[in-house]
């Protein structure tokens, strides 16, 4: 599975250095960094560029009491770990996740003074927690997207149309589908599900067809890890003329000037 992404890890490294990746992409890069030493020196070069930006802010002196707060927080955490309970220091994480984390920490640390190895294990657990937080953020984002979509659907003048799969999916795979909502002011919101993960070097592209020959590119996108995508687009006023065909095609990664024959979804919009 990981081999499919080999070609794109190098391209993701600058975004990694700038913290500009999605949680899925970030996980992918971190796994590749663990696996492939050759990526580490490349990462170092990009981190150096990003660090130069990090040092480029007007200097602000933190309040003197901040050091005390940091040291108190560390002491409190160590004491908490030593007596066998974990205080939730990130309120955004659901309590159930903290329960799991607490059990993991207790299983590793036990009761007593922590050694260096135990600190390292706590660091690893922290990484696992971060992955849970990232998942949590993704679900929150999706819920917000769906709420936004639901609100849009009931607005006056909004037209809805379905996009249906053109190609047969692989056996046991759900069929890709989607819905497009068109507002009178030209805003288009496209919600797509069950899209296949594409091999490295390919992307999805939204096309709007004028007749059967000319097509305009509306967006280039990649679905999330669950095969879902929500794309916000604007249709230029001059293009809004009656019923038009919208298709989702698979294209080379940087997008195409003209659509490929690899059409995944299609639907008529007003």
């Amino acid at each position: 599975m990981a081999e499919r992404y080999e070609g794109s890890i190098e391209e993701l490294l600058p975004g990694y250095a700038l913290n500009a990746l999605s949680p899925d992409e970030q996980t992918l890069v971190e796994r590749a960094l663990e696996r492939e030493p050759r990526y580490q020196s490349m990462r170092g070069e990009y981190l150096e560029g990003a660090a130069a930006l990090g040092a480029g802010h007007e200097v602000r002196v933190p309040p003197p009491e901040l050091l005390g707060r940091v040291l108190n927080a560390i002491r409190a955490e160590d004491e908490t770990l030593a007596v066998g309970s974990v205080v939730p220091f990130r309120q955004s994480i659901p309590m159930a996740m903290w329960g799991v984390a607490a059990a993991l920490v207790l299983a590793v640390v036990g009761v007593g003074t922590m050694t260096g190895l135990e600190y390292q294990r706590v660091g690893e657990l922290e990484d696992e927690m971060d992955a849970l937080v990232a998942d949590n953020g993704r679900y929150e984002e999706r819920l917000q997207q769906q709420a936004e979509l639901a609100m849009l659907a009931v607005q006056p003048g909004v037209q809805q149309a379905a996009l249906v799969a053109v190609a047969d999916p692989e056996p046991a795979r759900p069929m890709a589908d989607g819905v497009i909502m068109s507002k009178p002011d030209g805003r288009q919101v496209l919600w797509l599900m069950h899209l296949e993960d594409l091999p490295a070097g390919y992307t999805y592209q939204v096309w709007l067809w004028e007749g059967t020959d000319a097509a305009y590119s509306m967006a280039v996108f990649m679905p999330d890890a669950d095969g879902q995508a929500m794309i916000d687009m604007w249709m230029p006023e001059h293009d809004a003329r009656g019923e038009m065909l919208m298709t989702i095609n698979v294209e080379p990664e940087s997008g195409s000037v003209v659509p490929s024959a690899n059409r995944v979804l299609a639907g008529w919009i007003n």
């Binding site: 490294l13 600058p14 975004g15 700038l18 070069e45 990009y46 560029g49 130069a52 930006l53």
Partner: peptide, 9 residues
């Protein structure tokens, strides 16, 4: 992003 970071570095 890649070219920009390289130049900044």
């Amino acid at each position: 992003l890649r070219l920009g970071l390289i130049k900044l570095r």
